[in-house]
């Protein structure tokens, strides 16, 4: 009853480039986010998730 009808739209055959690019962009932007979180400006920001795992203040 949850899925009353199945449609024969080719999802994987058409959209595989978008799935590949989704995975790639996710990895790329995650890397950028980590880089910016570890940069000089934000390493001691109180919002940095490092502090929730018991991170200490780092002197620059």
């Amino acid at each position: 009853m949850m899925f009353p009808k199945r449609f024969s739209t080719p999802v994987l055959k058409v959209y595989w480039p978008f799935f590949i690019s989704g995975v790639g962009i996710y990895a790329l932007f995650g890397k950028f986010a980590d880089l910016s979180a570890n940069s000089k400006e934000f390493i001691n920001d109180p919002r940095n998730p490092r502090f929730e795992k018991g991170g200490k203040y780092i002197e620059q």
């Binding site: 959209y15 480039p17 978008f18 590949i20 690019s21 989704g22 962009i25 996710y26 932007f29 986010a33």
Partner: peptide, 21 residues
């Protein structure tokens, strides 16, 4: 900004891969 820009990057890269394929 990060959310929407990554969405548009995914669309752009996906359509480029479609064209190359």
């Amino acid at each position: 900004i990060v959310f929407v820009i990554s969405l548009s990057f995914i669309i752009w890269l996906g359509s480029t891969i479609t064209g190359f394929n």
